[in-house]
Amino acid sequence: MKTAREIWYLLQKELVLEWRQRYALSGILLYVLSTIFIVYSGFQQKLAAPLWNVVFWIIMLFASVNAVVKSFVQESGYRQLYYYTLVNPLALLMAKVLYNTLLLLFIGLLTLIVFGMVAGNPVEQVGMFAGIIGLGSLGFGIIFTFISAIAARTRHSATLMAILSFPLVIPVLMELIKLSLTAMGFTESTGIEKDVMILLGIDLMLMGLAMVLFPFLWRD
């Protein structure tokens, strides 16, 4: 119960922090918008569904990395240590994962709306696609948060973040692309539960591991 309350307070803290220093959030939004505009002006036409799908997830991937990389570096090391003495470190990790998942969900839905407006929207089942974005946000949130905790220990965290996390998200990304093709009516929806179960399985396993390994990362 105590941990749940801690997670809740930390989540509020993250939101307030994000709202007070709006540069990060607005930076990500501008990043998404300008990427979409570049893609749109590059193609100059409506994209076919499979292409649209891949471009969407690539925009989502890069925006996610940029959004999450600051997780463990935006506050000074001393203040981080202070948090760890104040609350359960695992609560801190879970709050960050939860917050990043929500942030990525927001970015994903925004990308869907804007990209759909400028490049056409081939998605037939929007509800299902939103669900897939949710699944993707969870997977990206877990992997990127953990890797950002690793990358925060180095001096070149932004570079290392991309190097370390891109190969690791590929399984998740492949499943997401496969699932979203179904939401576009491009492939049959048979066996969709299996893909969802695999995604959730990967998420669950990585989250468990992140929680086991996190105590080794924050200590100095």
């Binding site: 220990r153 690791l168 399984p171 695999i198 399985g201 990967i202 396993m205 990585l206 591991l209 390994l213």
Partner: peptide, 15 residues
Amino acid sequence: VSAAYNVFAFAALIP
């Protein structure tokens, strides 16, 4: 840190 990454990466490689 690299030990933690190694364990995490191996788990991510299983799928």
